[in-house]
Amino acid sequence: MVRVDGSGSGGALIQVRGVDKNYSRAGEEIHVLQSLNLDVDKGEFVAFMGPSGSGKTTLLNLLGGLDVPTHGSITVDGDEITHMSAGKLTQWRARHVGFIFQMYNLIPVLNAFQNVELPLLLTKLSKSERRQHVEAALTIVGLAERMNHYPRQLSGGQEQRVAIARAIVADPTFLLCDEPTGDLDRKSADEILDLLTRLSTEYHKTILMVTHDPAAAERAHTLLHLNKGVLVEGAHLDQVAGGVA
């Protein structure tokens, strides 16, 4: 279940309450998010759409503990992250969040295996345990045979699949995807969306995805529309697509 009116029960995996996010630019106060409420239950696949500058990425950054709200609170799996210290927040991210970026953001000097292994370096897993986890993650994304390839030796779609393997390898509480298909052709984009859908249906991963792509949004269980910092539930795809254009 996903709600945006603040009426969700205390059992939601993600609870956002009265979140404002303001920026100050050239002396002017910009209100990016206003009194935002959101409840996301475990296993949900949520898509956020909205025009550029509507605050989609800002919301994702707040949910991922990369940024802090000006007002309000965010609670994930019982942990209120809004008042955590920077150090605690870093540890929390390592344990709970898997990030998937539009530009993949793989480390070019590391091969696929090493890129996927990165989050596991922060755990107490042994080398052989890390190897098992990495191989499992790369198998899920269908790139087990490419584990020794460097990013430059992979296509865009394959790079994004490695990035997804990196995001899931530590079995995080939820995945945050920022335009995961934004830099891909239609075929590769569909493969990535198939993979995300599988992660949601087969592995019951909670996924929050920002996208401009209506085809991507269609895969989500719930589509939320963000406009001028305000979240609207159940927006029709046609309306949203019109807003983007």
Partner: peptide
């Protein structure tokens, strides 16, 4: 810069 940001995002401390 971007790579360092990704490292921090996935949980590498400052």
């Amino acid at each position: 810069t971007a790579e360092l940001a990704v490292l921090k995002a996935v949980g590498f401390s400052d």
